[in-house]
Every structure is written in structure tokens, then in C-alpha cells.
């Protein structure tokens, strides 16, 4: 090594065999040590998870979390309608988005009146949730789920539940079936 001998010549360029900088070699050896430790810890023990194992664990945890988290039911949505904070949040969304078709008070214009007792697609809380989430595209109700997400959709439903049957005067004429 580093004998100042020319080992190869190409195109007039002489190649010698110098010693590499020691600090550079140190990074190589450290990388080897790291690789061994990495292989041992991730692939030979259960102490650290490979990305695949980590993903499986996280997916499992997410599944559990979703199962526990407020299962969507008529009861849970009806309960949310009694939570003033959720209703208030829902009102904010309603008056910035839904207002275009249902009016700020929900009495309806392009879209149906939400304050009367007549309903086109059912008046159960889960019916309303489905209506907001997936819409009725042929009738003009877009699916808002992708934009609002689950939480804001629930809150909007809570707000609508809080104003239904309030019979706002001057609202749009009834559409659909009478529901009590």
C-alpha cells in the first residue's frame, strides 16, 4: 500500500494505490457493525419490528381503535345531538357548506326542507349520516364524506337532528313521506 508504484495506466492517467483516509475507512467499518446490529435486532430478535411487522401491529391497533370509537348507531348520533359543542361545530359546517342548497336555517331551497316532518330518504339518524356521507348523486346531493371526514359529518348530522321537526316558517314545501 502506498508504495508510490504505478499500478495501472490508462490514457496517460497513472493509477497508484494510496491508503484511504482512516476516517473514511472508519465509516465503512462502522457501517458494517451497524449492519450486523441492524440485522440482529430487526431480523433475528423480536425486540425491534421490521416495517412489515410494524405495519401489521399498527393495522391491528387501528382496527381495535375504530371498533371502540363511538360505534355509529341511531342512539349514538341522537346522543351527539344533545351535545351542544358537537351541534355548534355542526352548525358551522352547515352554514358554510350545506347552506348553498338547504339555507342557513335548514328550511330548504334547491335541497329539501330539513325542518319539516317529511323525508325523502328516511329520518333515522343513520339515514341522515348516510345521506351526508355518500349523497344521492342523481338527485344532486354530492357525497360530502371525502371532504368533511367522519367527525364533521357526525357533527353536521347532530345539527340537523337538533333542527328537524322545528317547522321553520316559510320553508320549502314538503317532499317525501311523513315521518314521526
Amino acid at each position: 500500500m502506498s508504495d508510490n508504484k504505478v499500478h495501472a495506466v490508462f490514457d496517460g492517467i497513472e493509477e497508484e494505490d494510496n491508503h484511504l483516509p482512516n476516517w473514511w475507512l472508519a465509516t465503512l467499518f462502522l457501517a458494517m457493525v451497524f449492519a450486523f446490529g441492524y440485522w440482529f435486532l430487526y431480523h433475528s430478535t423480536v425486540w425491534l419490528d421490521t416495517p412489515a411487522r410494524e405495519y401489521a401491529k399498527e393495522a391491528e391497533a387501528q382496527k381495535k381503535r375504530l371498533a371502540l370509537q363511538n360505534p355509529m348507531s341511531d342512539e349514538s348520533l341522537a346522543a351527539l345531538a344533545n351535545d351542544p359543542r358537537a351541534v355548534e361545530e355542526g352548525k358551522k359546517t352547515f352554514t358554510t357548506i350545506c347552506v348553498a342548497c338547504h339555507k342557513a336555517d335548514g328550511s330548504g331551497s334547491v335541497g329539501p326542507n330539513l325542518t319539516d316532518r317529511y323525508w325523502l330518504h328516511g329520518n333515522k339518524p343513520t339515514d341522515l349520516y348516510g345521506a351526508v356521507m355518500t349523497g344521492f348523486q342523481d338527485k344532486g346531493m354530492p357525497p360530502w364524506g371525502p371532504q368533511l371526514g367522519e367527525k364533521r359529518t357526525r357533527e353536521v348530522v347532530a345539527f340537523v337532528l337538533s333542527i328537524r321537526n322545528s317547522e321553520v316558517p316559510g320553508g320549502k314545501a314538503p317532499q317525501g313521506d311523513l315521518k314521526e
Binding site: 502506498s2 494510496n18 484511504l20 483516509p21
Partner: peptide, 14 residues
């Protein structure tokens, strides 16, 4: 010169 100026022949830092 045939060697990096800041590295000695044995690879150590000058």
C-alpha cells in the same frame, strides 16, 4: 504529488 495533501501516507489526518 500522488497523495491527498491532507492525508498522510498511512491514512491518518495531517
Amino acid at each position: 504529488r500522488a497523495q491527498l495533501s491532507s492525508i498522510r501516507a498511512d491514512g491518518s489526518r495531517l
